[in-house]
Simulated assay, not measured.
Amino acid sequence: MIFRERTDVGKAKEMFLAQIKGMEKTELLPATSSISRVLSSSILAPRNVPHYRRSAMDGFAVRSVDLLGASPTNPVMLQISDDVMEGTCAPVNTGDYVPDEADAVLMMEDTISIGDMVEIRAQVHPGKNVGEIGEDVRKNEIIFNKSHLLRPCDIAVLASLGINDVKVYAKPVVAIIPTGNDLLPLPGEGIPAPGKTLDINSLMIAKYVEKWGGIARYCDIVPENKQLIEDAICANLDTDMIVVSGGTSVGDKDYVPEVVEKLGKKLVHGVGLSPGKPTALGVADDVPILCMPGYPAAGLVALFAFGKPALRKAGNIPDVPETKVKARMSGKIMSREGYLSYARVILEGNIAHPLMTAGAGILSSIAKSDGFVIIPENVEGCEEGSEVEVVLIE
């Protein structure tokens, strides 16, 4: 396979992302249905939390001045009452309202109840074990900034403030266009005839699009025909991103990069990515287009390298660090200098076993693996026994 040029992965990614604008479309959602959505505006607290003085302990609400000098050898006796005044105290549980006349809460462990009296065996300073109004959140405080990715704990905070609806960015829509004369739609019936292949790439791409925060638009399989490929891309220029699967190599019928260049601008064709060298990147009518190889493993690596960051930028979705673990190689991994290589490994404790270091079409090797060892362009493989970082497959 010969390409006129091969673009560095980092440079290709930079060029691609530079073409992408974060979407402006928003929608109003119930807060309880907004987990993993991105706020399109900052949220201010409409009230204080707590909105009353509350006890931080089980015990008695007291006036600290009444407990001066109290100790196990010099206890102070107070009357148990519903009100707090000189000589009295009120029982409270954690989270209870603390009467205005009380300025502290004494822990139950420092008392002995005797009928309607309580023996106090410790003194407290003003404010002890009392949560003041607005201690957690103050009214008009910024709770979450614009572009914050909402988590389950954030939804609980919104509920505590009485915020029922939130304004979020709409999810980016990604059109998935499979190409190839050999493809058959899912679900397949029986075993495909020799030379025919089920279109598993569309399903794989769609599930990752949904996992990463987008909406997948499935498209019909497009034969290896320039006009039909052009028509399919044009029909989906109303989306936020297009992923074309197949037709990116340098064969006589690999028309996709040529069509992208005709419709808009081909940024890159051929990247220093292994597997995934035939990847092409472009833009048409301000819509970014990722043209990934039809071989499933190569296509998936291209999707991770370019599709995921592009989708996140289009949807204003904050970057989430990849999950990585350190491991030691049980065997040697070969790689080509000048290529960013994704080597598949199986983890066994802190040992990484090479699974399938070659074979762009072997998708099962990814399903069987736990993650990738990403080998930089300027490094020739990993030696047995070397320590590596394994990027876990999501």
Rank of each mutant, 00 (worst) to 15 (best):
L44N: 09
L39G: 01
R37G: 02
S33Q: 15
I35K: 13
R63V: 04
V62E: 03
P50S: 03
I20T: 07
V62C: 06
S42E: 15
M57G: 04
L29R: 12
S33A: 15
S41R: 12
M57L: 13
A45N: 05
F60D: 00
S36R: 15
R63K: 12
M57T: 10
Y52T: 10
A61L: 01
V49T: 02
P30I: 06
V49I: 14
I35W: 10
Q19W: 04
S42M: 14
S41K: 14
R53I: 01
R63Q: 11
S40Y: 07
L17P: 12
G59E: 03
V38M: 03
N48H: 08
V62M: 06
A45Y: 02
R37P: 01
V38P: 00
L39R: 02
G22H: 07
R54T: 02
A61S: 05
A61N: 01
M23H: 10
K25H: 09
Y52K: 14
R37D: 04
K21E: 13
M57K: 15
K13P: 02
P30F: 09
N48A: 05
R63F: 04
Y52M: 12
R53F: 04
I43G: 02
L29P: 01
I43H: 05
V38E: 00
P46I: 07
D58V: 12
K13E: 05
K21Q: 14
R54P: 00
Q19V: 12
A18C: 11
S64I: 07
A56F: 07
P30E: 11
V38G: 00
D58N: 15
L44Y: 13
H51L: 08
P46A: 08
R53G: 00
A56K: 13
I43R: 06
S64L: 08
K13H: 03
S41W: 02
K21G: 10
V38Y: 00
T26C: 08
R47I: 05
S64A: 15
S33M: 14
A31H: 03
R53W: 04
L28G: 02
V38A: 03
R47G: 04
K21I: 06
A61E: 00
E14D: 12
F60V: 06
E14A: 14
K21R: 15
I20N: 07
A45R: 03
F60E: 00
L17S: 12
K13Y: 02
I20A: 06
F16A: 07
G22C: 09
P50E: 01
S40K: 08
T32I: 13
I20R: 08
I43P: 02
S34I: 01
E14V: 09
S64Y: 05
L28N: 11
T32V: 14
Y52F: 14
I43Q: 05
S36G: 10
S41A: 13
L39F: 08
I20C: 09
F16W: 09
P30D: 10
R47T: 06
S34T: 01
R37I: 04
E27L: 13
V62R: 03
A18L: 11
N48T: 01
L17N: 10
V62K: 03
A18Y: 09
S33K: 15
L28R: 15
E24I: 08
T26Q: 07
F60H: 04
R37L: 08
P46F: 06
G59R: 04
I20W: 08
L44T: 09
L28T: 12
S34P: 06
K13G: 02
R53D: 00
I43A: 05
L28C: 10
S55T: 03
A31Y: 01
D58Q: 10
I35M: 12
S40Q: 11
L29G: 04
S33R: 15
K21W: 04
